[in-house]
Computed example of a mutant assay.
Amino acid sequence: MTTTTDPTFRTAAEADIPALVALVESAYRGEASRTGWTTEADLLDGRRTDAAGVREVLGDPGGRLIVAELNGDLVACCHVARRDGPRPGESAAYFGMFAVRPVLQGAGLGRRVLAEAERLARAEWDAREMRMLVISARADLIAWYGRRGYTRTGRTSPFPYGDERFGIPRRPDLEFELLVKPLS
């Protein structure tokens, strides 16, 4: 019997776009997102993504949009993309567009998706590290990544205020922080 801790993984396809948009939105925005713990509803209004944004990620030739399924039902996703590494000639990977269906959060599924992304980055690109950007106000999320070996770098970048593709900020102090984890 399949449990929330043993999903199957595959690369997303064009036909998955509506389900992926719904998944990402449900995990981060609006009242439905409050069922889980990854909500950004107190920080941002508006959309987290749309069909065009997901299609752009699907078309990334240096990356992969991974979906996790339980009994054929799409329940989680993430984007993993190859990047230049910390030293010349080394490869790194970027992790983003991570979402887990809110009612399944806290059951180990996110940990499995993250592990699959790290496995893929090592196996396919020989990536030496995984990088991600997290809203620095998300202390609970940063702590979750910390328990999985990610460290805060202190390197921040501004939140794109005025660009509603990233949401409508509810506060003026949002920024992204780079988190990294060695993979080898």
Score class of each variant (00 low, 15 high):
180 V>Y: 11
17 I>E: 00
128 R>C: 12
40 E>K: 03
133 L>V: 01
44 L>D: 08
68 A>M: 11
178 L>P: 03
82 R>C: 14
48 R>S: 09
136 S>F: 03
121 A>R: 07
35 T>D: 06
121 A>P: 04
36 G>N: 06
84 D>C: 08
9 F>H: 01
29 R>F: 03
142 I>T: 07
72 G>A: 08
124 E>S: 12
167 G>V: 08
8 T>P: 00
181 K>T: 03
50 D>S: 13
51 A>E: 15
7 P>S: 02
121 A>G: 09
55 R>S: 14
112 R>Y: 02
64 R>Q: 15
156 T>S: 04
29 R>P: 01
121 A>F: 10
56 E>C: 01
116 E>D: 04
154 G>W: 08
123 A>C: 06
95 F>P: 02
18 P>S: 06
17 I>L: 04
154 G>N: 09
59 G>M: 04
75 V>H: 02
3 T>I: 01
115 A>R: 10
81 A>Y: 02
21 V>C: 01
172 P>H: 05
66 I>T: 14
134 V>Q: 09
47 R>A: 15
176 F>D: 02
6 D>Y: 01
37 W>S: 10
31 E>H: 09
79 H>A: 15
160 P>N: 11
86 P>C: 05
1 M>E: 02
19 A>M: 08
101 R>H: 13
160 P>T: 03
78 C>W: 04
43 L>H: 10
139 A>D: 15
35 T>P: 00
97 M>T: 10
49 T>S: 15
167 G>I: 06
145 Y>W: 10
107 A>E: 15
98 F>T: 03
164 E>G: 12
88 P>V: 13
96 G>H: 04
48 R>V: 04
101 R>F: 08
166 F>Q: 11
23 L>M: 03
10 R>G: 09
35 T>M: 05
66 I>H: 06
124 E>G: 01
37 W>L: 01
103 V>Q: 14
169 P>M: 08
135 I>W: 08
47 R>V: 14
148 R>Q: 15
114 L>E: 04
79 H>R: 13
161 Y>D: 09
75 V>I: 02
71 N>A: 15
82 R>W: 10
41 A>Y: 09
138 R>D: 02
60 D>S: 04
133 L>M: 12
106 G>K: 02
